[in-house]
Simulated scan of single mutants.
Amino acid sequence: MPSTDPAAFRDRAEAGHALGAEVAAHLGQDGVSGRPLVLALPRGGVPVGYEVAGTIGGDLDVVVARKIGMPGRPEFGIGAVSAHGPPMFGAHVHQVDLTGPEITATVAAERAEARRRLRRYRGDRPPPDVAGRTVIVVDDGVATGVTATAALRQLRMRNPRRLVFATPVCAVETGVALGKEADAIVCLRVPTDFTAVGAWYEDYRQLTDEDVEAILAEAWNETR
Rank of each mutant, 00 (worst) to 15 (best):
T4I: 15
D5Q: 08
A8I: 11
A8W: 03
R10T: 14
R12F: 05
A15H: 05
G16H: 09
G16Q: 10
L19A: 11
A21I: 10
L27P: 08
L27E: 01
D30V: 15
S33N: 01
G34Q: 06
L39H: 01
G44T: 08
G45I: 02
G45F: 00
V46A: 06
V48M: 09
G49Y: 03
E51Q: 12
G54R: 11
T55H: 06
I56F: 12
I56V: 12
G57K: 02
G58Q: 05
V62G: 03
V64D: 01
V64R: 00
A65Y: 03
A65D: 00
R66D: 05
K67F: 13
E75I: 00
E75V: 03
F76D: 00
F76H: 03
G77C: 06
V81Q: 00
V81G: 00
H84S: 10
H84W: 13
P87F: 12
A91G: 08
H94Q: 05
D97Q: 04
L98R: 05
T99M: 11
P101F: 15
E102D: 09
T106K: 09
A109H: 13
E113D: 12
R116A: 12
R119S: 11
P128F: 14
P128S: 15
D129T: 15
V138C: 06
A143C: 06
T149M: 10
Q154E: 06
Q154A: 07
L155Y: 05
N159V: 04
R161Y: 07
R161H: 12
V169D: 02
V169C: 08
E173N: 08
V176R: 11
L178Y: 04
C187D: 02
R189N: 03
A199L: 08
E202Q: 14
E202S: 14
Q206M: 12
Q206N: 14
L207W: 06
D209F: 13
E210Q: 05
E213N: 02
E213L: 11
L216D: 07
A217R: 10
E218N: 13
A219P: 07
E222Y: 15
E222N: 14
T223D: 11
